[in-house]
Nucleic acid binder design. Structure first.
Length: 490
RNA sequence: GCCCCCAUCGUCUAGGGGACCAGGACGUGGGCCUUUCAAGCCCAAGACCGGAGUUCGAAUCUCCGUGGGGGCACCA
């Protein structure tokens, strides 16, 4: 085994759905590991039993895999450092906490929550009440089963300096630190201890995580130094901000009047909306990282070759859903038509439409430049499948037109189409162009009532192809229906 | 209240003392194309947070403001 090779981890807590902030952290870890020929681990940090959400671990794994982010070791695939679920490692954490007590770097604390609450009042730090109690006494109290925690003995003078890869040296005054808890009275470790122990034992070389950890970085470095271990390379990613750039990205669906182009920040919602994982990856990777001033289109394979921690931008990035749409549209346009068909199908079925493959192969070319998400296909195509379409007669009449004119147009078009042996779009086009000419109308003026009559919509895929696919029975029926409606109000 | 981080077009960013009256992308406005809507192509508007300092020279280095963000638990 090459013990010097790069090892990174994504270590989420199973408290809810994966959102794009977490996904982006996972992505950066994954890419960095692949770039360096190293290993990526997934570790579930579930030491807070109160916040545990049933099923979220499975969902998280599903979402990551869907995005194409994989790992070499983890709770689902195992590995030489199993288990990868933190709550199953508490014995290890406990023994490490006790070791710190033995070497004088930590101590048992018997203060109850009521007392802590009373001394804290506001932002006061722990007063060190149990810090200097005689060891023989504390050991006895622990042995007798008295409820206790283990606290880290923080230095109260001097400074602690830690180096972050993209932020350089970060120095804190030690007097700012308190004797924080390493091990809780419920028998579980606190994150600070558990993560550092696991990272060390699992051979993690680079810790790439969110900015929210920056303020406890000194604690983590102090723990590692107390054990006498060497530190990983630290790399703290900035947070993601709301679309407008004001405030932290919020978990609620951000689609509002202010941000009409917004989407949910949860990966599984994006998936259900019909986004392609590749588009999401391309979009996410650029929030806080760039290669240069030339290339913005990347797929996972590209990124695995060029991703670099040094080019991460430390300043917070606002989420821009418009750009997600852009990458998604681009993705669709470069996909093959059969691929698009395969992606669209589930959405059509979900809406109760039942396309077969030959139908799909005719339809996809008409909409592939018009859809953004795969879900969009539903509104473009549903009138092809419905038995009846709902029409308001007034919609049939264009703004600059009259009921009479519209009626004439529809009647003439119907007549023209009836005379065709079969509906082929080239043929329809030449005949209707002639008709427009004859009636002294622009082609658009002639076509719009027809579009409405057969689709029920102001906008539709290109009309001539649409008529061909619909077939003459349906087309003539719908035009006749529209004529009837107009006659009723005329 | 205290600590820490960050600061280039509306947004994502390039830039790392002279190559910058600051480049690209999304979005926006306009044009071309056109049967609607798109797609595509072309054009345009649009930024170095403020103030000191260092320097022959500052978007770039330093300091101070200001603004934004993160954190200060027997949460992660």
């Amino acid at each position: 085994m090459n013990i010097s090779s790069t090892r990174v981890r994504f270590a989420p807590s199973p408290t809810g759905h994966l959102h794009i902030g977490g996904a982006r952290t996972a992505l950066y870890n994954y890419l960095f590991a692949r770039r360096n020929g190293g290993s990526m681990l997934l570790r579930i940090e579930d030491t807070d039993r109160n916040r545990y959400v049933e099923g979220s671990e499975e969902q998280l794994i599903k979402d990551l895999k869907w995005l194409g982010i994989n790992w070499d070791e983890g709770p689902d695939v195992g590995g030489i450092h199993s288990p990868y679920t933190q709550s199953e490692r508490t014995k290890l954490h406990r023994s490490h906490a006790e070791h710190l007590v033995n070497i004088g770097k930590a101590y048992y604390c018997f203060c109850n929550k009521a007392r802590l609450k009373s001394i804290r009042s506001g932002y006061n730090k722990y007063d060190g009440h149990c810090r200097d109690t005689d060891t023989n006494i504390t050991l006895q109290r622990v042995a007798s089963g008295e409820e206790h925690t283990i606290r880290f003995r923080s230095p109260n003078r001097g400074t602690t300096t830690v180096n972050d890869l993209i932020r350089k040296n970060i120095t804190v005054q030690n007097e700012q630190l308190e004797d924080f808890i390493l091990f809780k009275s419920d028998g579980f470790p606190v994150y600070h201890l558990a993560a550092m122990v696991d990272d060390h034992v699992m051979g993690i070389t680079h810790v790439i995580r969110g900015e929210e950890w920056l303020s406890s970085l000194a604690k983590h470095a102090l723990i590692i130094r107390a054990f006498g271990w060497s530190e990983p390379v630290w790399c703290h990613l900035s947070v993601l901000k709301q679309p407008g750039g004001k405030g932290k990205m919020s978990k609620r669906d951000a689609k509002t009047e202010e941000h009409p182009d917004s989407h949910s920040i949860f990966v599984h919602d994006l998936r259900n909306r019909g986004f392609h994982p590749g588009a999401i990856i391309n979009w996410m990777v650029l929030m806080g990282w760039s290669l240069d001033d030339k290339q913005e289109d990347f797929n996972l394979v590209d990124l695995e070759k060029v991703f670099d921690l040094e080019r991460i931008n430390p300043s917070p990035a606002a989420v821009n859903f418009g750009k997600l749409d852009h990458f998604q549209g681009k993705y669709v346009r470069q996909m093959s038509e059969s691929e698009i068909a395969a992606n669209i199908k589930p959405f059509l079925f979900k809406s109760g439409l039942e396309p077969d493959d030959t139908m799909m192969s005719k339809l996809v070319p008409l909409i592939k430049n018009r859809i953004v998400t795969f879900e969009d296909s539903v509104q473009w195509l549903s009138f092809f499948f419905k038995k009846e379409i709902i029409l308001a007669p007034s919609d049939l009449v264009g703004k600059k037109s009259t009921i009479k004119e519209t009626l004439v147009i529809l009647q003439q078009v119907k007549l023209t189409l009836e005379q065709l042996p079969s509906l082929e779009h080239e043929n329809i086009e030449s005949k209707l162009r002639l008709l427009a000419n004859k009636l002294d109308l622009k082609l658009g003026q002639l076509l719009n009532p027809v579009r409405l009559a057969i689709s029920g919509q102001q906008v539709s895929p290109p009309l001539f192809e649409t008529l061909e696919i619909l077939g003459s029975d349906l087309v003539l029926d719908r035009i006749q229906e529209a004529i009837k409606l107009l006659e009723d109000i005329y």
